[in-house]
Design a protein around this nucleic acid. Sequence first.
RNA 1: GCACAGGUGACCGAGUGGUUAAUGGUAGCAGACUGUAAAUCUGCCGCUCUCCGGAGCUACGGAGGUUCGAAUCCUCCCCUGUGCA
Length: 377
Amino acid sequence: MPVGTAGTVKAVSQDILEELGAQIILGNTYHLYLRPGHELVRKLGGLHRFMSWDRALLTDSGGFQVFSLSELRKVKEEGVSFRSHLDGTSHLFTPERSMEIQIALGADIVMAFDECTEHPAERDRARESMEMTLRWARRSKDYFEAHKQEVPWSESGHRVIGSSDHRKSGGTPATQPGAAAVHESITKPNVPALFGIVQGGMYTDLRRESAERTIELDFPGYAIGGLSVGESRAKTMEMIGTVLEILPKDKPRYVMGVGYPEEIVQYAAMGVDMMDCVLPTRAARHGLLFTSEGRINIKNARYAQDQGPADPKCRCRVCARYTRAYLRHLFVSAEPLAGVLNTVHNLAFYLDTMRSVRHAITLGDLSGMLAGSVSLA
RNA sequence: GCACAGGUGACCGAGUGGUUAAUGGUAGCAGACUGUAAAUCUGCCGCUCUCCGGAGCUACGGAGGUUCGAAUCCUCCCCUGUGCA
């Protein structure tokens, strides 16, 4: 899942995301609450409609910002008080508030408000954090069940611009004739789903307990959070493996915030269904490209006269059209197009990788990909 | 020709007797980035060695000089800009 924190997957437009085959993207509660404000988004018909994205949308609860904005927040039982990174104003985030905002945004998948435990964390601290996340999960669910609303603008999958009540008019696209056909086969549930989040630091028994007690709350999907926060990859794998043994296989299992191409293939092979990561998009804007030949830093002098595509095996529109020499020039020149093209390629690479994973799963054999994944990046 | 103002490392530009191989930028070279405070951040950036602690050279237009010590003060010369002839 490409990450689109502020209602946009940075540097690429929605039509390109569709072309790349992205089926779902993320939005972020904290960021959209601060700007432009969830009430405004609700008033404008929900986040799908606001950003013209009629495929699936998942909103993160703000739990990660508890971790990443640690300088600007204070965690209490009731919730987390943040000082806005934009203007310094104070805001209280509670599980109920997070749900209220996410419901207003109108995402298809809503995440429980959790505390992303920092690393390293002492055992007692990790337990305390895990317990808090469990209590917040309960509160998130209670509020969500009592207040959830139909997901706006995603019923038919038809893209309808300029009509706020297209469903009432029979779902007929009001404008953009022909556009509907592109997404005709895509249907989404009307009712949003709330996912619980497993925490527990880097302690297998806490992870296990967190998973078991989160399952007791009975969510339609489960996420594993608090990973890739500085621990070794072996540790990440250990935690994922431990939790996957417990989480039900017939529900989506989502590892939050991972990873490098070779990592996400491994996680998928372990049984992970969903992942999101800023890496392909952020790295792209910083000049790092993921290719079948490994990572390349496009700003390196060695590419100044390289007439080949970013990735000779990639079939994306960027690789089909532009040379490494040109991509380097754009980056070195700080041209905005550099970030755009690099992002398109990296997302293509990630989404292609996952398409291959799905294909391999369909064929019943992921081992070949795993063997080959060493060369992925 | 005269009068002012200047000449600093690839470039711009601080520094006006001593912690100065010389502040800052830019350019250049490389690295980091994992539920996005990130089109961001970090390192290197005179030359030669290095056991990476450092060592030795050469440097602030040129040549002399003053001084224990000079990019900084003095003399002459060269060059640039502006104004006047």
